[in-house]
Design a protein around this nucleic acid. Sequence first.
DNA 1: CTTTTGGTTCTGTTGTTCCAGAACCAAAAG
DNA 2: CTTTTGGTTCTGGAACAACAGAACCAAAAG
Lengths: 161, 161
Amino acid sequence: MTTVDGEKEERVREKVEQMGVFFERSGLAPLTGRVFAYLLVCEPPHKDFFAIQEFLQASKSAVSNALSTLTSEGMVDYITFSGDRRRYFRINTAGWLNNLKNKLRRAAVLGDLLDDVLQERCDSGCPAFSNELNKIVVFQNYLARGIDQLIDDWEKKQAVT
Amino acid sequence: MTTVDGEKEERVREKVEQMGVFFERSGLAPLTGRVFAYLLVCEPPHKDFFAIQEFLQASKSAVSNALSTLTSEGMVDYITFSGDRRRYFRINTAGWLNNLKNKLRRAAVLGDLLDDVLQERCDSGCPAFSNELNKIVVFQNYLARGIDQLIDDWEKKQAVT
DNA sequence: CTTTTGGTTCTGTTGTTCCAGAACCAAAAG
DNA sequence: CTTTTGGTTCTGGAACAACAGAACCAAAAG
């Protein structure tokens, strides 16, 4: 391995740790986050089981579980090559995008729950608080609709090109 | 307690469980989520330490910790009344709103990380993947800017009234 | 058929989170 | 001063999550 390759590898490793933490903080298990991060930065962008295990220095079971949660959530899939039994795992960009969208749309749930609360509080002895709450509900619904609109617009723009 | 009060209490208890689960799923500890939910639906909308403990049937330490994490995150604060040593805890609507906004703005971080990845991949042997990735970055940035815009617009509208 | 390969599933260990109970502490009341 | 009140902090246990290692299994290779 040349010095240049070594530097590249070092940068990749750094990026994986950095992004791994990010994905961890957004809900994935540590190793699962790092697997996803690795598939994002590795070259070429698809790796077989052993390569992932080797790079992350983790056990087979841990890698297997990480990959199966990622695939079951649609964020990763794999390709194969004839004459080669291995699966080559890679980021499923479409599935990932869908995940991002769904997570954003989930924001609307809070609005619905708060609507119920307001209903219950309508004859409350403390209208000032109901009023504050109402502001939040309005904001929440405004945002939920706005985000939906943004996503719809973007999808329409994609359909054209 | 009258039958009507009993029914009301039952509804409140249901709502607290329901919303408690929601807040739990969005990152709070189970009891912490229920404390927040209780403060949202209770009448009047401020309760002292013992009332919260009693309603949720939890230990003092658990309630104390829940309240201190909620206050340190700015989602709850308390008021006092002269001649009464107790603190009356309540939802801090402004702080909560700020939290919601900040969480949404955090979406931009992913865009920055992916920008770095694209930079690294610019001379990749697999431009198809870089291209897909670029789509996600564009979408992510589009959304981040869009959400910021939504929030700014809303704040401007609030400032007027 | 037997062996190897690519991966999954089971079992056990370690570490972390959530909470109860008790000890503790400061301020107010007596 | 001593006692009570309103709450915080310390200690420990139960439950769960993350991972390693080994057993396992199906399909391909020999």
